[in-house]
Amino acid sequence: MTDRQVVVRAIEKALGEVLEREIAELTEDTRLFDDLRLDSSSVLELLLLVEDSTEIAVDPEDLDIDHLRTVRSFADYVESLLDRAEADA
């Protein structure tokens, strides 16, 4: 499994927990707000779950709404944090 697949799988698992249901046919083009109907509290829960599962730390000042448009944009953001943490190690 590639690093990207691990990140997307972590997001998928977290979304299932947040929404309390399995997400059928989740793709990287799935829109978090429009398709899955996330709100501010569910986004916060999603961030916390993904932080825990990937061992990253999200800086709220670094987070932009564009990072949360789709599964792809969120996975890109998580990957950038993982790359940054790896470079700092």
Rank of each mutant, 00 (worst) to 15 (best):
M1W: 11
T2M: 03
T2F: 09
T2D: 13
D3N: 14
Q5A: 13
V6Q: 15
V7H: 00
V8L: 05
A10V: 06
I11P: 00
I11V: 02
I11W: 00
I11Q: 04
K13C: 05
A14H: 06
L15C: 04
E17M: 15
V18Q: 07
E20F: 09
I23C: 00
I23E: 04
E25G: 12
E28A: 00
D29K: 15
T30C: 08
T30V: 02
D34K: 15
D35Q: 12
L38S: 06
S40L: 05
S41A: 14
S42N: 03
E45H: 08
E45D: 12
L46S: 06
L46A: 04
L49A: 07
V50C: 02
V50N: 04
E51W: 01
E51K: 00
S53D: 11
E55N: 09
I56N: 10
V58T: 04
D59G: 03
D59K: 04
P60Y: 09
E61H: 14
E61T: 11
D62P: 04
L63Y: 13
D64M: 10
I65P: 11
D66C: 01
H67E: 08
R69H: 13
T70S: 15
V71I: 09
F74W: 00
F74H: 03
A75G: 08
A75K: 07
D76V: 05
D76L: 10
Y77I: 05
S80A: 13
S80F: 09
L81A: 08
L81H: 08
L82I: 07
R84A: 14
A85H: 10
E86F: 08
A89M: 07
